[in-house]
């Protein structure tokens, strides 16, 4: 049940992100799948979060059609990193949540660009690139603060349904 729920979340996030005109704030496109990967990294065990990051990144890769595997690898690494760091911090604090998502998103974007550059993608590291990295990080952070609690509630509900199904067969 939990996996079905996660699947629906990924599908909706991807449709929202890629559906035209899409979710664009001040010219920047928040990375919803990376955002959900980071939030689940704060909620789940490292293995589960890494799996979620990898699968959602791979689904995004299949839509982009170039450098297939790069988003998967990036999201997986970011989920592990943010999960590892936030396990040692007080995640209920708004600032901690915002900072974790902001840093995770910005690092993820840089990692993706570095990875793509090493396979021939030419992206000048100009102020436009930096503003896109910081802008996406900022919007992801703000959206993350807003959707964290509803996602915690959904996650709890899905875990409860899983338990219920296990016990009732």
């Amino acid at each position: 049940m939990k996996h079905v729920g996660y699947g629906i979340i990924v599908l909706l996030a991807l449709a929202l992100q890629t559906g035209s005109p899409g979710l664009v704030i001040l010219g920047f496109r928040p990375e919803l799948l990376l955002l959900f990967s980071l939030i689940f990294a704060m909620l789940e065990q490292p293995g589960g979060a890494a799996g979620f990051g990898f699968v959602s990144g791979l689904l995004q890769d299949l839509i982009v059609g170039q450098f297939i595997g790069l988003y998967a690898g990036t999201y997986l690494l970011m989920a592990i990193l943010v999960g590892f760091v936030t396990k040692r911090l007080y995640r209920e604090n708004l600032l901690v949540r915002f900072s974790a998502i902001f840093v995770g998103t910005a690092l993820g974007q840089m990692l993706y660009l570095l990875g793509a550059a090493s396979f021939g993608f030419s992206s000048p590291w100009s102020w436009i690139t930096w503003s896109a990295i910081l802008g996406t990080g900022l919007f992801n952070g703000l959206i993350g603060v807003l959707v964290y609690r509803p996602l915690v509630a959904i996650n709890r509900h899905l875990i409860y349904l899983d338990e219920l199904l296990k016990r009732t067969g």
Binding site: Q17, G19, S20, E31, Y112, F121, A132
Partner: peptide
């Protein structure tokens, strides 16, 4: 009809 766009800021594509 345009039904989709690239999911990130690094590609400018439409579907």
């Amino acid at each position: 009809e345009v039904i989709g766009r690239s999911p990130s800021n690094w590609e400018s594509t439409i579907v």
